[in-house]
Design a protein around this nucleic acid. Structure first.
Lengths: 247, 247
DNA sequence: CTCAATTTGTTCGTATGTATG
DNA sequence: ACATACATACGAACAAATTGA
């Protein structure tokens, strides 16, 4: 009885896509490096316990994507300039959230006033009245890398509507008085792109994405900001840095 | 012009799996709530632009997974106790990393001494000599939720080998002198399970996971710890909390 | 230079799975 | 439930390019 090991024969989609996914990820993560030679197709087939033809199909797909280069008689090589594995690094502490706009564009998709706040399954704080809703896409160069839904307390929005409309919301918030009494809560989920996100970010509907929910509360515990951001998994990495201080 | 919208007709696997994935995700994210009634199969087919039979196939799969309950003549309902969407919350700041072991088990998979450090593509710090390698699985109840590979500076390990072998490494580190001069760098990637991770965590090979790389440096900038952790996306969420302090 | 070994490329055939009407 | 079309997975045979003995 052969152990199929890693690959799911049922319910998880075509084998050749699973194999392609594994190799694609190894390239993205730098395990396979540019110009490096892949094991022969026969070896890969042995490794993953699939037919040679199936591996070939995976390889063909990755070649179309520009990640691999095949040479008859020589072997298969990682492209010297794979368009993958170049991470957009987002440092996600308070200070760094502010200046991450150089070379990046924001496009507004939707806006509406006096919206009820979304369900937040935590006891982070309490809601206050109505919120202003804004949906935006962030791009870096040509590449859309995040889809964000913002709920900003209407009370806060009305303090500086023009600025909130044209600038990054968190950036504007940080310029306001009492800004240093605000708390930032970030929840990170690892999931796959839904319908809308896949469209907006030009992804397949099962592509891995990061779902980050940011909630900002003021010193009274009122929730003044909720931001739900979906990041492309193949392009974005988040970074957090902290100094140990024991309690 | 019909909107195919979300679903990929090519190269992304069977339609019924894509549809099942969408519904599964909506349950996990709380968009569809326990005991709630699903739209009729005909409506779903209309919504996703696929054949009725295809939706039926998706529904059957989710019923097998225990997420849905079908009642002839009434409709399809979200299970009242879906085994999904109940998050294991890991607070990932320094203090919280220490006590996150109640009700959780750690199993050691591999250990080896004097290993060269892995490639770290950053200028976080400098390596020092050899490292001790440890591979572990963390479980909560019956559920394995993380696979972690640890590289601990051999110099540090030799200070308290027994404790590092039996306890959580970061926890032991924090008990050592000069602990409050240590810096923690966390990088978070959104990706899909590879071969080994899928096996270890009992996942399909393309399931979404979070890949967190933690690097700890001492005050001289020496890298004393590298931890590469892969978290199950369907079970783990990370939380970060911070207070705004403007510079 | 020739030959053998290796590796990818191409083309059959066949069985099963998937999607639709 | 059935019929049809297409996709997926496998194995096998042979062709073409590369390498090194």
């Amino acid at each position: 009885m052969l152990e199929t090991a890693t690959l799911e024969r049922r319910n998880r989609g075509p084998l050749y896509l699973q194999v392609a996914g594994i190799i694609r990820r190894e390239i993205a993560n730098g395990i396979l490096k540019p110009s490096q030679r892949l094991p022969s197709i026969a070896e890969l087939a042995q490794k993953y316990q699939v037919a040679v033809v199936t591996v070939r199909q995976s390889i063909s797909l990755l070649e179309e994507e520009g990640l691999l280069l095949r040479q008859q008689g020589k072997g298969t090589f990682i492209s010297s300039e794979p368009k993958i594995g170049k991470w957009l690094v987002l440092k996600s502490d308070w200070n760094s959230l502010l200046h991450h706009l150089e070379g990046k564009q924001t496009k507004s998709l939707a806006v509406s006033d006096n919206v009820p706040p979304p369900a937040i399954d935590v006891r982070i704080g309490h809601f206050e009245g109505a919120y202003r809703f804004m949906k935006r896409i962030h791009s870096s160069g040509d590449i859309p890398y995040a889809l964000i839904e913002i709920y900003l307390s209407q009370r806060i929005y009305d303090l500086a509507p023009d600025e909130f409309d044209t600038s990054m919301v968190i950036s504007v918030l940080s310029e306001m008085k009492d800004a240093n009494t605000l708390d930032l809560h970030q929840s990170i989920f690892f999931t796959t792109a839904d319908h809308e996100t896949a469209n907006a970010l030009n992804l397949a509907s099962n592509a891995p994405i990061g779902d980050v929910v940011r909630v900002i509360t003021d010193k009274s515990g009122a929730i003044i900001y909720i931001g739900k951001t979906k990041y492309r998994g193949d392009f974005v990495k988040l970074e957090f840095t902290s100094r140990l201080h024991r309690k």
